[in-house]
Measured scan of single mutants.
Amino acid sequence: FIDQHRAALIARVTNVEWLLDALYGKVLTDEQYQAVRAEPTNPSKMRKLFSFTPAWNWTCKDLLLQALRESQSYLVEDLER
């Protein structure tokens, strides 16, 4: 899901800070967390977050999807259609 809908997630996720907090310490290191937060816009934050995903396994991507479902369920539901 995460890889399949990358472009839509970059464009449409609005609550990136919540995602970062949910992933911090589980998937994201402090350095990665700070790097994403330093980006000026939500799309650039999501691009930076996605720059780390090639090194993630399915469990990490599932944690991101779970966080998306909790914070932006309407968006996930729309993309699952």
Rank of each mutant, 00 (worst) to 15 (best):
E70L: 07
D21E: 13
N15C: 04
W18T: 14
F50S: 02
E39I: 01
L68T: 00
G25A: 08
D78H: 14
R6P: 04
A38W: 01
L64G: 04
I10E: 05
T59W: 14
R69Y: 05
H5N: 12
S71Y: 06
A7T: 10
Y24M: 07
R69Q: 04
F52V: 05
W56G: 02
K48G: 01
Q4F: 09
T53E: 12
Q72D: 15
C60Q: 15
E31Y: 07
L19D: 08
E80Y: 06
Q66I: 12
T53W: 10
V27S: 06
E39Y: 07
R12L: 00
D30E: 14
A67R: 05
E17Q: 13
S51K: 00
K26F: 07
L28Y: 03
L63E: 10
S51P: 03
A35C: 07
E31S: 10
A38D: 11
R69H: 07
V36S: 09
S73V: 07
E17L: 01
K48F: 06
Y33Q: 06
Q4D: 08
T59S: 13
L75M: 05
S73I: 05
P54M: 10
K45S: 10
Q4N: 13
N57A: 09
E39V: 02
C60V: 07
A67Y: 11
D21V: 06
N15H: 10
G25W: 09
K61I: 00
W18Q: 15
V36D: 03
A8C: 10
T14M: 05
Q66H: 04
F50L: 15
T14H: 05
E77M: 11
A22W: 12
L23S: 01
L63I: 09
R69I: 11
R37D: 11
L75C: 02
L68F: 07
R37K: 13
A22Q: 14
S51R: 02
A8F: 04
E77V: 04
L28Q: 01
Q34M: 09
V13R: 02
K26C: 10
S71N: 15
A22D: 10
Q4K: 13
E39P: 01
N42P: 10
A8Q: 13
E80M: 09
I10W: 03
W58L: 15
N57Q: 03
Q34I: 02
W18P: 15
Q66L: 05
V27P: 06
S71C: 08
V36N: 02
P43S: 13
A22E: 12
R6G: 07
P54Q: 13
A55K: 14
R6H: 05
G25I: 06
L68W: 00
P54K: 14
L64E: 00
E77N: 11
S44Q: 14
C60I: 07
E70R: 09
A35Y: 02
K45A: 05
Q4C: 08
E77L: 08
Y24N: 13
E17C: 01
Q34G: 05
D62H: 10
T53C: 09
V36M: 02
L49N: 11
E39M: 12
L9A: 01
L23T: 00
L19W: 05
A22P: 00
E80T: 12
D78N: 10
T14N: 11
V36Y: 00
L23C: 08
L75Q: 05
S51I: 01
C60T: 14
Q66C: 07
